Computed example of a mutant assay.
Amino acid sequence: MTTRTEKRLSVVEVTRYRPRDVEYHAYVEVLNSRAVRAAQDAGWVVNRVAAADVGTASLLALTDASDAIMLMGGEDISPRFYDGAADYPFESQHFETADEGQISLVHRAIRRGTPLLGICRGLQVINVALGGSIVQDLGTQTIHKNLGAPIRDIMAAHTVALDSSSRLSTDLGVSEILVQSAHHQAVAHLGDGLVTVGVAPDGVVEAVEHIEAPITGVQFHPEDPGAPSGQLAALVARLSVRERALA
């Protein structure tokens, strides 16, 4: 049982069941488990929830007492949530129940001023929840994913330039970081209230912040075993900061 003095963090993933893609699921499990451990090491009591497995109402109920939220990576968001094309290159399986539930979490976090970190798909959920759109495929000449590689080698390393005036740059103490990424989609049009605070060498948006709410999204994977030491811990630490609620 938690007490009032304990910090409660909900780590929200897409699903705990991927019988159609066991290898991919095993890799996602590594990433999500590392995020959970990093949060626990930082003193959080972690509640791990799979959005597609519980539905929107239960997801909101299970995370209602959370002091912060972390939205993890996973499959593409269904195009119907951002008026995208129905067919596109490298389209993944869609979990619309997860999309709906995680979008609702973003809306509630905005209302309450709850700190929220979105990783990879999590950034895209934040963007779509706030009315933004998605580049559905970055093409085959990309620095953001090792196309055709085994899943264990899918991450690609590149730099991200940070806006020196951003909260993210201030908290990390640097204006450029090295990241691990594995995405074929990215932010197109920014959602309401979001600003770009990190950009890859090819111009792809790699980090966003909300102008008022304590919400951050990163397109890269700080929870990957190959990510620079301390990067995930620094991002988890940002979840302890609660700024003023919008409503």
Rank of each mutant, 00 (worst) to 15 (best):
E223C: 00
Q102G: 09
Y88W: 15
A245H: 05
A26G: 06
G84R: 13
P222C: 09
T2A: 05
I103W: 07
V28C: 02
P228W: 14
Q180T: 00
A247Q: 09
D83W: 08
L31F: 06
R112Y: 09
P150I: 11
G43S: 05
W44A: 00
Q102E: 15
Q93H: 14
P150C: 10
A52C: 11
G203K: 11
L123C: 06
A227C: 04
T159Q: 14
G101N: 11
P225H: 15
S92C: 11
E212D: 09
G132Q: 12
R37L: 12
R152E: 14
V187N: 05
G217C: 00
S164D: 10
G203T: 11
L60G: 03
R20K: 14
D67C: 00
L194V: 03
H25V: 04
D99F: 10
V199D: 08
A200V: 09
E75T: 12
I211W: 07
S133K: 11
V205I: 14
G101H: 07
E29G: 01
M72D: 02
Y27D: 06
F95L: 15
E223K: 00
A213M: 05
L178H: 02
V195W: 11
G101K: 14
Q40T: 12
V205G: 01
A237L: 09
V125T: 14
A129L: 06
E6H: 10
R18V: 04
S164W: 06
V46D: 01
P79N: 06
F220W: 11
Q124R: 13
G84H: 08
L168Y: 04
R167C: 00
Q40L: 03
A51F: 09
A233E: 15
T97C: 04
S58N: 13
D83P: 00
S169L: 07
T97V: 15
L239I: 02
A51P: 03
S240L: 07
R37S: 11
I143R: 11
F90A: 12
E29W: 08
M70P: 01
V199C: 09
G173L: 08
A57N: 14
A38E: 13
P201A: 13
S175K: 07
G173Y: 02
I119S: 04
